[in-house]
């Protein structure tokens, strides 16, 4: 498969869809805070906030973008995100 962009890629037979999962606004992110402190230690000034999340990349056989989006949303609700503390966004090609 050829990857033509850093985001999402569609080719004839499959679709690459990303789920971006972040802690909800207002939920304290101790890891993000640690990263912010470390950046300060390295001399990067003016970093006022860091939030750490995760990207999950899925290769789907589905070629219909709407269906793929709905399917990945269901995956996020069922497993990929803990909606108690995390929000998610589905990125389509």
């Amino acid at each position: 498969m050829t990857v033509t962009s850093s985001e999402c890629v569609e080719n004839g037979n499959s679709m690459k869809v990303r789920a971006a999962i972040m802690l909800k606004t207002g939920v304290l992110d101790p890891q993000g805070e640690a990263i912010r402190h470390a950046l300060g230690t390295l001399g990067f000034e003016g970093v006022e906030g860091v939030r750490q999340g995760k990207i999950i990349e899925l290769d789907l056989a589905e070629t219909d973008a709407k269906k793929a989006e709905a399917e990945v949303q269901r995956m996020c609700e069922a497993l990929l995100a803990n909606t108690v503390i995390e929000s998610y966004e589905v990125e389509l090609p």
């Binding site: 939920v27 304290l28 101790p30 890891q31 640690a34 803990n82 108690v84 503390i85």
Partner: peptide
């Protein structure tokens, strides 16, 4: 059970 367990505040 309700709620979530997150990374310890002190990492």
């Amino acid at each position: 059970l309700p709620g979530a367990l997150m990374r310890n505040a002190g990492i």
